[in-house]
Nucleic acid binder design. Structure first.
Lengths: 336, 336
DNA sequence: CTGAAAGCGCTTACAG
DNA sequence: CTGAAAGCGCTTACAG
């Protein structure tokens, strides 16, 4: 193991104290210009690279925010991460991204790991199976701010950044109404997620506003696996009065619907109108596109989540208990 | 700021030394069972969470490997990360993923950052604009092992894990030959990437084996932007004897070709056979699929890269200078 | 089996 | 403007 140059090495060479070198490198105002120059020159020559680990340790801050996402193969989360990164870079923070792979146990482990590593804040989109608040309370106890991102369990005591789920649902439904649809199925997400409830609420509200009676038979819960979506579509298509359109929790589910229709109900495939949450980059490559998507502006959501985390970090020093925030980022329908 | 329980707190309460507590928590063999029990019990009660930052700092290891990828919207890289993660978890290591966003300057900054944070190893897929070895030498100087992943510049002194690029190209070409194609265009990647050269070599080798003269006019360099692919396709389609098939550096380029053909040459769209590197999950949703893809087994590549990094980390202690390795992970053609 | 001591590389009051 | 000292939370030879 080679070991690098340290502040001590520089101090010795220059006949200075380590404190002076440290301050010089950090441009501390009390240090003379000449000293700063000498120190920086040698640091340069010797390719001194500060040990951030040591700095963080000493300062009792990791300058790192942890992000836990269910699955990065879902481009929605990648866009969000890009937003988080942008804000983090501006604040000279690092971002550590982990995937729970929709596994709640694994998620617990990741949170534990983040606490052990003393990240300064956590942004998390929970798994589709997460309902317990236990692990989030542990973050609280450890004094680490956390915000739910996009997906949240029913726990209003935590911060939550999301798209305006209800409004997005309204936009989707109204668009479908305008296209003449009246029998619109809703494939909703896991019911213990606030997010699912909010989108479902929008669905019902849209129907009510339009004066269309709510029909439970048109709603199915899915867990985003193809299997469940297959089952749901099959059941719905067997109805006496089957739906003519689908409003799905997310576009990936909509893509599965399209695929299933193409395979099992080729006659219907072209006619069915489909809208879901998530304007995914991959849609551009599809020939058989969904009719539209709710653009959640996930990059912006990432930005807002990161900003909220930084606010919370700042507020820690003020040590007043802040009220939980629910930030809704506007969304808009995009027609393909 | 709340501060957590430390080893010292536990030691004080139990009238022990911090060394004993530390050893007890780490199951050091020299500590009595009784002591271990007492320590662990209190640690549990008090919700002691070890400060990994401190441990890493003390041990002069971050137990972290850094991964730099061009862009996580490309699912190929996400699959690779999953492979890296799997190996890392087994070794009790963390993985820190950063994106260069195909920006070479930014890449330099990320490497710098990883050195500052003293990661134990780096896996990197370079940007499409990277050609300079400078920054990689800095990692060397800092004593941090690095392996090029998938994409590499021409610098055989570094480790490199990649699919068997030449063989993949041969498979693609032979498949197209079997389909009856003789005029096969190649959209190749940036020429200063070893990867591009290797795939191009396979292309030429396949032609030679088949006794088909190599025609420079059928080759175009692209930088993966749609614009360049559009230009290339337009030029190729204007040839007196235009290609009947495309072998592309990667499937995303192939998808762009399909899109362009659909828009500009609808008559040709269905007939053109297209094969590229990368069996992407999103292909399942396409109706208008490429004919096939070279499955690079990116998860496995991630696994191999991580294993190589861990080998290198272990070898550091032995401090003999190891020879650079070029690991080729087998690939196979997948027909859609 | 347990503990005292040194130290990882820095930063930051504090004194001069 | 500079420096001596303490210390962040741990681990690890070493002594007993």
């Amino acid at each position: 193991m080679k070991k690098g140059v340290t502040i001590k090495d520089i101090a010795r060479k220059l006949n200075m104290s380590v404190s002076t070198v440290s301050k010089a490198l950090n441009d501390h105002p009390s240090i003379s210009v000449l000293t700063k120059e000498r120190v920086k020159k040698l640091a340069d020559e010797w390719v001194y690279i500060p040990n951030e680990a040591a700095r963080h340790f000493k300062q009792n801050k990791s300058f790192t925010i942890g992000v836990i996402m269910p699955d990065l193969l879902d481009q929605f989360y990648v866009l969000a991460i890009n937003g988080v990164e942008e804000v983090a870079v501006k604040n000279n923070y690092n971002v550590v991204v982990s995937q729970s792979h929709e596994d709640s146990e694994r998620e617990t482990g990741l949170i534990e790991n983040m606490i052990r590593n003393r990240v300064d804040g956590v942004i998390i989109a929970v798994t589709k199976k997460t309902w317990n608040t236990e692990k989030f309370k542990r973050l609280n106890t450890a004094g680490i701010p956390m915000v739910f991102f996009s997906r949240s369990i029913s726990a209003p005591e935590f911060d939550y950044v999301s798209t305006d789920n209800e409004d997005g649902a309204l936009q989707a439904m109204n668009f479908l109404f305008n296209e003449g649809h009246r029998r619109i199925a809703h494939l909703m997400g896991p019911p213990f997620l606030r997010t699912s409830q909010q989108r479902f609420d929008g669905y019902k509200k849209a129907l009510a506003q339009k004066g269309i009676p709510f029909d439970t038979g048109l709603v199915a819960e899915v867990d985003f696996t193809q299997q469940q979506t297959v089952d749901a579509v099959k059941r719905l298509m067997k109805l006496k009065d089957p739906p003519t359109a689908f409003f799905t929790f997310k576009s990936y589910v909509g893509l599965d619907v399209i695929k299933i229709l193409r395979e099992k109900y080729p006659k219907m495939a072209g006619k069915m109108s489909i809208i879901g949450f998530g304007n995914l980059p991959l849609i551009q490559y599809l020939e058989d596109k969904p009719m539209g998507s709710i653009d959640e502006n996930s990059f912006q959501m990432g930005v807002e989540a990161a900003q909220l985390i930084f606010d919370r970090i700042d507020q820690q020093e003020a040590d007043e208990e802040p009220k939980p925030k629910f930030i809704k980022v506007p969304c808009k329908i995009v027609v393909h």
